[in-house]
Amino acid sequence: MNAYASSSAMTARPVDGGHPSTAYFSTGAGEKKRKPMLEAVDSRLRLVVCWGFALAVIGLTQLPALLAALALAGFAAMAARLKRAATLRHMVAFDGFMLFVLLFLPFTVPGEVVFSLNGVSASREGLLHAAGILLRSNAVMLMILALLGSMEPVELGHAMARLRLPAKFVHLFLFTVRYIEVLGREYRRLRVAMKARGFRVRCNPHTWRSIGYLFGMLLVRSIERAERILAAMRCRGFQGRFHSLTEVKTMDRRDYAFTGLSVVAGGALIALEYW
């Protein structure tokens, strides 16, 4: 339900956000001492490589290349130490309409008949097409979760800032990340209050209206909060720039190794496709 609940459940990282000098003081009980390998890699690099991987994979059509891409993403997920159960749940949870897309493909693509259902025949080409979509989307999603989902959203914001994305966009991103947590907490509090008064979510206009009032109330509170934030920012002389709390590090040996590995892997995928 809440973004932060599931993101932290998914990433298994020290609570301090992975700052090198404080990682050893992590209070996360029962967590492994060694940091995942990927965490040491520059966040900008992870963003760029993830983007490149997605671009390469959506162009793949051959089954061996697609399987290799999925294996690569699985390897990255292991290197990032993603929680297996949560990741699998994310992988099977498609938006409902994607199910239609996949289910109808075997029947709408013409080709060699494999089996038929109530007089409608499924084609080999259609099945392959559906399998291709399933492999491509899962490979990209797994790579996103491994390379980007494993960092704090704030770190992603700083990575985008250092990649020279517009400052206004980065600020919007960072503010939104922060407020999702705040408002998510407030939302759950209001829901508990509604539950205490006997409210149950059903399929009727009363439910839809009540949840609407709840979010209306959240908006009213948020606008008052926005006024306070703006006043606080003015008071501190905000000049359109945030100071990053993480040190700006230069590329080190590990980053170069990661870059080299990514380029080789990408080349191998493309080679498999056009073999």
Binding site: N2, F175, R202, C203, T207, W208, R225, A226
Partner: peptide, 22 residues
């Protein structure tokens, strides 16, 4: 920007609510 971000966050949370339908 803070105001737009707050609205975006409210809408993000609202988009996660699941309504039973059939």
């Amino acid at each position: 920007i803070p105001q737009a971000a707050l609205f975006a966050a409210v809408l993000f949370v609202a988009a996660l609510v699941h309504f039973p339908a059939g």
